[in-house]
Amino acid sequence: MTASDEAVSVRLGPVDQIPVGEGRAFLVGDEPVAVFRPRSGGLHALRAICPHRGGPLADGLLDGEVVMCPLHNHRFELASGACVSGGDVDDVAAYSADDDDGELVVSLVAP
């Protein structure tokens, strides 16, 4: 998918508002988005709501690969939103997140 001009792209302030190794939730247009900042580097954005039972993904533990929903430990790939924990849970939407000279930019397009 190409990042079309129509895609909502929002500057959300300093990247440092997300502690290293954690996630924080933001609103991009009407979409709740969880942005993660793994210790291994980079930024990843997923829809903030777990497709299993609506858990807050921004509150989840994460590593370099996945975030784990705090309610039932379902895991989703940070890069793609794919659910990797089994048990027939849908994937979660993944969005593009970038560090633009210290500022967090999220677009509602696939990363």
């Binding site: 440092d16 508002q17 997300i18 502690p19 954690e22 924080r24 939730a25 933001f26 609103l27 009407d30 709740p32 969880a34 903030a48 709501i49 609506g54 807050p56 993904l57 921004a58 509150d59």
Partner: peptide
């Protein structure tokens, strides 16, 4: 203890 420690994780809900 960290920035946004107590921020809402499910905005709009």
């Amino acid at each position: 203890a960290t920035p946004g420690q107590f921020h809402d994780a499910l905005p709009l809900i």
